[in-house]
């Protein structure tokens, strides 16, 4: 059964599955607005300096040209796929095999902004992005790049204070993950809800309510490497 999601999967030749979450239009518009504000800010400061010194404003236009065309490329390649705007929103540009973006693809994707800009103000790019299953605009399509979320390292969550319990049956990986999730996210849902969920597994662990929750927390702690 097909489930709606934004997951992007790549299998490496070694058989390792890499996954990433694709980033859609709204966060990308936001990142773009931040970037363009930065660019205009820089140009405006430049202009003010030149004007106050009574210099010719020609170089300001050259600076504008350079920033407009090379700001995204330079940042994407030299700054691990992130312009400042993307960094703030937490996005990153990668090749569509999830390798870091190269000069080649970054230049193609950013120079084709001109096409995405048509008819005006990036409407073409926006429409393509919404219609494409991988949220690619035309520049992304031709350069073979995607925009995904960068995983942020979370602070280690406070685990429940229970003793780790060695599991006495081998669970499949996905089931282990479910129990680990149950343990890590214990502070997010109410204790009533936790008991309700833990009771679902009664046929497996044979416990109820508080005991069931504690048992599952213990297992989760074990799977996370806690041994005491």
């Amino acid at each position: 059964m097909y489930l709606i999601n934004t997951e992007y999967k790549v299998e490496t030749p070694e058989g390792v599955d890499l996954t990433a979450e694709l980033a859609g239009p709204i966060p990308r518009i936001l990142a773009f607005i931040i970037d363009i504000s930065i660019r205009f800010g820089v140009i405006y400061v430049f202009y003010l300096i030149f004007q106050s010194l009574n210099w010719t404003v020609g170089p300001v236009f050259i600076a504008y040209f350079l920033l407009e065309w090379f700001y995204p490329t330079l940042f994407e390649v030299l700054y691990r796929g992130q312009t400042p705007g993307k960094r703030i929103v937490g996005l990153v540009v990668v090749n569509d095999d999830l390798t870091p973006v190269s000069w080649n693809s970054s230049i193609i994707r950013n120079f084709l902004r001109t096409v995405d800009f048509l008819p005006v103000l990036y409407v073409g790019g926006l429409i393509t992005m919404i219609l494409n299953p991988h949220y690619k605009r035309l520049g992304d399509l031709s350069a073979g790049t995607i925009v995904v979320y960068k995983n942020r390292t979370k602070d280690s969550e406070q685990l429940p204070k229970v003793k780790a319990i060695a599991p006495n049956l081998t669970l499949e990986l996905e089931d282990q993950v479910a129990i680990v999730n149950f343990t890590q996210r214990h502070s997010e849902f109410s204790s009533d809800r936790a008991q309700e969920i833990a009771n679902i597994l009664e046929p497996i662990h044979g416990l109820q309510n508080k005991n069931a929750v504690n048992h599952l927390h213990g297992l989760g702690k074990w799977y996370l490497g806690g041994k005491d």
Binding site: N168, D175, E188, F189, I197, L201, P203
Partner: peptide, 27 residues
């Protein structure tokens, strides 16, 4: 997030794997 739907769904899927049933009670 608040009601842990995803965990509930995976726990229910776990129950459908018959091999787990009862196995947990025996060492």
């Amino acid at each position: 997030e608040l009601e842990a739907w995803d965990i509930e769904i995976s726990f229910r899927n776990m129950l459908e794997k018959e091999k787990y049933i009862g196995a947990g009670k025996l060492p």
